[in-house]
Design a protein around this nucleic acid. Structure first.
Length: 438
RNA sequence: GAUCUGGUAGCUCAGUUGGCAGAGCAUCUCCCUUUUAAGGAGAGGGUCCUGGGUUCGAGCCCCCAGCCAGAUCACCA
């Protein structure tokens, strides 16, 4: 264990002094919270009695009076500690010793008090009584926001922020918003599916053969069976089996595990949502997808658009549908229709795309699209009708056997969804997978 | 996995030609009864990522080794 810093030693000494005074720094009893920072501001009444709890985030002590900020799960509220209010009798130790000397920024306290507005009009709680609920033993990073809204001493080191997510959440309020929106998004998707009577399921995470995608798996071991098991890379095959078994629509939020390189947009464990519906095709799925996303945008943001970096994305359905062939014509002038592998290779080379002789037609087209087209689609756009070689689990196109009934949805130059008219001809399926192995 | 960039106080960062390790905030002591990046006076706090090399002397130098992170690329989604 690392030696304690000066500040950690001081906080432990304070812990001892609190106990000597008969104050339990980690009391077991519930604290009767009846308001939050937000509820107080929404329904402010001078003189109203409130009980709140939260983390002490800043203090401005001026002798016998002091302002502090309390942060709860909703936000922050200013609190006012006044010696004579807290200690009406002769014993001033609750203010002079406990509050001023033994509390620290980061401690969690409960406050019983009365609402008032300060001379500059800020909504504030006049503290009548406070209770230490949890003593913090480590100093908290302490960003401060000035009058112009500029953050000073921000907690910005990415390593520290990711490894100590709890500290990041305490100190950088916008991080909490990401968590909240993610859950709202998941709830919105569930509601949309459940209203249509699609059925949420859970399928195996430990699989004897990892399938449904092309990625290296994590491997683990089952002791009593003495067999290797793999963490799933996709849930696709199990969902299809449920359709085979007689469910008309099934979906799952699947945590998948892929043993590949990682960066800010690729986590070794990530969540995908997959839904399978019987008797439909990929045209139906495009209609369904754009309605789903519009529904989710409204549920999460209250409007059909959302902000991603500099871009404003409009989620209102419908979205343009462009075939892969047309997309490549649009951005390069080159028509891939009927071209041989050699012609595709020559074109890619001439465009400066990094291709090699091992790539088949499908891979070459994928490279051309990825390099020249994909990044241009900022607003939601369906790209349809992928070459057969790229899509071994997808039905051949009803009008052109060289293509498949597949689409991907592009947003902000990235793929966010992928769907097929699922291949259900078992003999064709076997032939295609066999060909892919060679 | 490759390349580039970085790692100095609890947090954010500066650090000159290689010559006693710095600032703001935080912490500690004192003053201050409506403040708000509160203010005033004083004090303490360091494995300069780790290990090696060069040098009288290294935070600084090394086509040096390692650890960690970020960005870009590869793989993947």
């Amino acid at each position: 264990m690392n030696p304690l810093s000066e500040q950690e030693i001081i906080r432990r000494e304070k812990l001892g002094k609190l106990r000597e005074m008969g104050i339990n720094p980690y009391p077991a009893a519930l604290y009767p919270v009846d308001n939050t920072s937000t509820s107080i501001k929404a329904d402010f009444k001078e003189g109203k009695q409130v009980n709140v709890a939260g983390r002490l985030m800043s203090r401005r002590i001026a002798g016998a009076a002091s302002f502090a900020e309390l942060q709860d799960s909703d936000g922050r509220i200013q609190v006012y500690f006044n010696r004579d209010e807290i200690c009406p009798g002769d014993d001033k130790s609750q203010y002079n010793d406990v509050y001023k000397k033994l509390l620290d920024i980061g401690d969690i306290i409960g406050i019983e008090g009365e609402l008032f507005k300060t001379q500059v009009g800020e909504m504030t709680i006049m503290v009548k009584k406070f209770t230490l609920l949890t003593k913090a033993l480590k100093p908290l990073p302490l960003p401060k926001v000035d009058a112009e809204g500029k953050v000073h001493d921000g907690f910005v080191d990415p390593e520290m922020r990711y490894r100590q997510r709890y500290a990041d959440l305490v100190v950088n309020p916008q991080v909490k918003e990401v968590f909240v929106k993610r859950t709202k998004l998941f709830n919105a998707m569930r509601n949309f599916f459940n209203e249509r009577e699609y059925f949420e399921v859970e399928t195996p995470i430990l699989q004897p053969i990892p399938g449904g995608a092309a990625a290296r798996p994590f491997i683990t071991h089952h002791n009593s069976l003495d067999i290797p098991l793999y963490m799933r890379i996709a849930n696709e095959l199990y969902l299809k089996r449920l359709i085979v078994g007689g469910f008309d629509g099934v979906y799952e939020f699947s945590k998948n595990f892929r043993n590949e390189g990682m960066d800010r947009t690729h986590n070794p464990e990530f969540t995908a949502m997959e839904i399978y519906v019987a008797y439909k095709d990929y045209n139906w799925m495009m209609d369904f997808t754009e309605r789903l996303l519009e529904h989710c945008a409204v549920a999460v943001n209250g409007e059909t658009n959302s902000q991603f970096g500099e871009q404003t994305i409009e989620w209102k359905a419908p979205y343009p549908r462009i075939t892969m062939r047309q997309s490549i014509i649009d951005f390069t002038g080159f028509d891939i229709d009927g071209k041989s592998e050699a012609e595709l290779y020559a074109f890619a080379k001439a465009e400066g795309i990094d291709v090699d002789a091992t790539m088949g037609k499908g891979k070459l087209i994928d490279e051309i699209f990825g390099e020249k087209c994909e990044g241009n689609y900022i607003q939601p756009t369906f790209i349809t009708d992928y070459p057969k070689e790229m899509s071994p689990l997808c039905k051949a196109h009803r009008d052109n056997p060289e293509l498949t009934e597949r689409f991907e949805l592009m947003v902000c130059g990235k793929e966010i969804a992928n769907a097929y008219s699922e291949l259900n001809d078992p003999i064709d399926q076997r032939e295609r997978l066999k060909r892919k192995l060679h």
